[in-house]
Nucleic acid binder design. Structure first.
Ligand SMILES: NC(=O)c1ccc[n+]([C@@H]2O[C@H](COP(=O)([O-])OP(=O)(O)OC[C@H]3O[C@@H](n4cnc5c(N)ncnc54)[C@H](O)[C@@H]3O)[C@@H](O)[C@H]2O)c1
Ligand SMILES: NC(=O)c1ccc[n+]([C@@H]2O[C@H](COP(=O)([O-])OP(=O)(O)OC[C@H]3O[C@@H](n4cnc5c(N)ncnc54)[C@H](O)[C@@H]3O)[C@@H](O)[C@H]2O)c1
Lengths: 209, 209
DNA sequence: GGGGGCTTGTGAATTCGTTCACAAGATAGG
DNA sequence: CCTATCTTGTGAACGAATTCACAAGCCCCC
């Protein structure tokens, strides 16, 4: 739908707007202005309107936006009207936390598989799923396609695991390993690098006024 | 040291460069060019040189950069030459994963305290520390100042906890709660919002080619 | 010691993202 | 029906970040 490439910063804000809209919806409000949305998100009303304008024109001049309708539109734009089938690879400390995380399921990200290379874990039931060997991934994906693989293995193993995921035919990857990963251009990769986030904080704290 | 405000994107890249430099150091290389650094990080050599130029001029024309020296400089710039005292508030699934995470300590982020509001957890020893009540935070901080508080409590409790952290006099906060938090301007807040990251992935997958 | 080959450091040009500012609609009230 | 008020949607202006392009410096070798 969008005519030109949408900036990453815009997509992040859409995600925020959606959260605020859901709050407004829960609070029983039926209409909201760009000004009110902006106040919540620490941005400006012009920014909100510009962000939305890339995707169409959803409001009524003089009135604002219908909360229910805009919520629906945001969901569609972000691809949240469907369920996403997610597998977690590496059921260690962070993998286990993610497997149990309710916030994922709430947004339609369903964890449908856990994979590990540790034979002590393979075959065990954890969080209502049986942990499987990474070697089974390609076959499993053929049987029931997976949309997103979450990588939660130690950094030195991450590139190899990503290669296996790609070879299995999975085209969406979210990684928590603090390294730069390489994937073919038809695979979408998103890395959450907590080490980098902490270093960013360290920089900010070290260089205050 | 930097003459003007440094862009967030620049700081993120510095953090990447540091990681690559450490790899080069471990591999025994003594010298590196902006071209080589760029290749690793998926950026351009001009970008690398521009990023570094905000902080000084660290290379030798015709030769490149001394790996050891540049590593040192990066550490100093990012504020990683010292140890940071970190407390984790909310010892649930993600809080526990973070408390055990080696990647933090390796970079000088030392977890020195765990806090929770659950009386079943308070007083228990977990990961070599005794879990304490959040009410003790202000006193504890007076005794031994804390640099960074990691917020790992449920979203509805997060703003209240942040207010307690701020009241206790801690001025660096890293939050994992998927909501917009508000802090006074002398407190530095950094939020890692995994829900947003997943939605970003959802958007990208829904709008490919 | 001078020339050739590299690579840095940085203004200038360009691209990208945000903010401004206002015409175009919409509503409400007299 | 006309006016006052409100808020959207969007070109245009502005500002920030990236990329270009090249002079300046360094090393090596002949
Ligand atoms: N623990 C945290 O809070 C945290 C925070 C940020 C980032 N991370 C990153 O997440 C990743 C995992 O960290 P962790 O603390 O959960 O480590 P962990 O050691 O607790 O868990 C790693 C898991 O991956 C499995 N594994 C190892 N190699 C594998 C392979 N080739 N294929 C499949 N599974 C494999 C191990 O058996 C183990 O179960 C690391 O890259 C780490 O840097 C962790
Ligand atoms: N689990 C994950 O993988 C994950 C991923 C991303 C974000 N998060 C976010 O991290 C936060 C924690 O998630 P979780 O899954 O670890 O939840 P959890 O329920 O496992 O843990 C929450 C902990 O916080 C404690 N707590 C609650 N209120 C408190 C208060 N007022 N003061 C101090 N402690 C308090 C609870 O006792 C519990 O120990 C949530 O905001 C969640 O959205 C979790």
């Amino acid at each position: 739908m969008p005519l030109k490439r949408i900036a990453d910063s815009t997509v992040r804000r859409l995600s925020l707007y959606l959260r605020f809209l859901e709050e407004f919806e829960n609070a029983g409000l039926t209409t909201v202005s760009s000004e009110e949305l902006a106040a919540r998100g620490g941005t400006t009303s012009a920014q909100v309107r510009k962000d939305l304008s890339f995707f169409g024109s959803f409001g009524k001049r003089g009135l604002g936006y219908q909360v229910g309708e805009l919520t629906q539109r945001m969901r569609r734009i972000l691809g949240l009207e469907r369920d996403w089938r997610v597998v977690i690879i590496g059921v260690g400390k962070i993998g286990a936390a993610l497997a149990q995380y309710e916030g994922f399921r709430q947004r339609g990200f369903r964890v449908v598989g856990l994979y590990d290379s540790d034979s002590a874990k393979i075959g065990r039931e954890m969080y209502d799923l049986y942990v499987r060997s990474v070697d089974a991934l390609a076959d499993d994906n053929r049987e029931q396609p997976v949309d997103i693989a979450v990588i939660a293995v130690p950094a030195p193993a991450a590139q190899r695991v990503v290669d296996q995921v790609v070879a299995a035919g999975i085209t969406g990857i979210m990684s928590f390993a603090p390294i730069q990963l390489h994937v073919p251009s038809d695979v979408t990769l998103n890395t959450v690098n907590m080490a980098m986030e902490l270093e960013r904080l360290s920089y900010a704290l070290s260089n205050r006024e």
